[in-house]
């Protein structure tokens, strides 16, 4: 693989029932590229958590996934409300998810911690009222 493979997705903030589609597509693409199952699992879980967060907390966004020879980068950008306190948001159990979302099984406050756990690096940039950008890297 000499050329980097680039995937781009629009994440719909309205349609909660199809949330996760981009992650499922990434999983498929990585499988076609012959990436190992452990790496596929890490990338697709980290991406799913980020994708769901954009749907639940930010009204949707965009996702770019680039597969290089030595790493996979996942770049998530939204124009939602931003995260007031990133350290707090990163703690296991912290969630601002409303009750209707909790009744679907989300809102345990484990999404961001999972993204950190399953990636080799994770950087969050967020500004209140402007939006959030999360860049994650998984080494191959």
């Amino acid at each position: 693989m000499n050329e980097a493979v680039k995937l781009h997705f629009l994440v719909d903030g309205e349609d909660f029932t199809s949330a996760g589609q981009a992650s499922v597509q990434v999983k498929k693409s990585l499988r076609q590229l012959g990436i190992s199952p452990e790496i596929i699992r890490k990338v697709s879980i980290a991406m799913y958590e980020g994708e769901i967060n954009m749907v639940i907390h930010a009204g949707g966004g965009e996702a770019d996934v680039v597969i290089y020879e030595d790493r996979i980068e996942i770049d998530l950008i939204d124009h939602g409300p931003g995260i007031a306190n990133i350290d707090l948001a990163m703690q296991e159990g912290f969630s601002t998810a409303p009750d209707n979302i909790r009744s679907l099984g989300f809102g345990a406050g484990m999404g961001l911690p999972n993204m950190k756990r399953y990636t080799d690096s994770m950087k969050i940039d967020s500004e209140l009222g402007k939006g959030t950008r999360i860049l994650m890297t998984v080494n191959l």
Binding site: T17, Q21, K27, R41, S44, F106
Partner: peptide, 14 residues
């Protein structure tokens, strides 16, 4: 939990 999201979770968690 029985809503549609369990399908994506099962797929991604393998």
């Amino acid at each position: 939990m029985s809503n549609i999201n369990i399908v994506a979770v099962a797929s991604l968690a393998d």
